[in-house]
């Protein structure tokens, strides 16, 4: 039996780096102005910045630079424990889309992780 498929994702970039989110975890996509969003760039040790904000149902917000909707199903490859630990447990696995790996993160957990990075500085 192969890995389970993921259907319905937002494929995003934070700077040059790839990130994917489950579409069903995103309640709204907003402009960053006036929002207290955690920039996804922090996870890659880059200065904050965002062109769009992904808002969860609980109101948490993560800023990204680009996003596109991917409706096709893709297999979810398990994340190695080393990678899960690095991302504070927010990493769900990796999806192979367009011949590239995309880290799939949980929106709420990833936002919490990003805010923790700032508090830990």
């Amino acid at each position: 039996m192969g890995p389970p498929d993921v259907r319905g994702m937002l494929l995003c970039h934070a700077g040059p780096h790839r990130l994917a989110f489950h579409a069903h975890e995103v309640a709204a996509i907003a402009m960053p102005e006036g929002r207290d969003a955690a920039s996804a760039r922090r996870a890659f040790h880059a200065p904050d910045g965002a062109a769009r904000v992904l808002v969860s149902a609980s109101g948490g917000a993560v800023g990204v630079d680009t996003l596109e909707i991917e409706a096709e199903p893709h297999p979810l490859l398990p994340a190695p424990p080393v990678a899960v630990a690095a991302s504070g447990g927010s990493l769900r696995g990796f999806v192979l889309v367009q011949g590239r790996l995309w880290p799939l993160v949980g929106l709420v957990d990833f936002e919490r992780f990003l805010r923790g990075l700032v508090e830990g500085e």
Binding site: P3, A14, H17, R18, L19, A40, A43, F44, L77, P78, A79, P80, V82, A83, A86, S87, G88, S90, L91, G93, F94, L96, R100, L101, W102, P103, V105, F110, F113, L117
Partner: peptide
């Protein structure tokens, strides 16, 4: 592929025979 939150020594991951390494 860079891993979010990864320290400098974790350069990234790649897919090899169906496994992310």
């Amino acid at each position: 592929t860079r891993v979010p939150g990864a320290p400098a020594h974790l350069l990234g991951v790649f897919a090899h025979r169906g496994e992310v390494i």
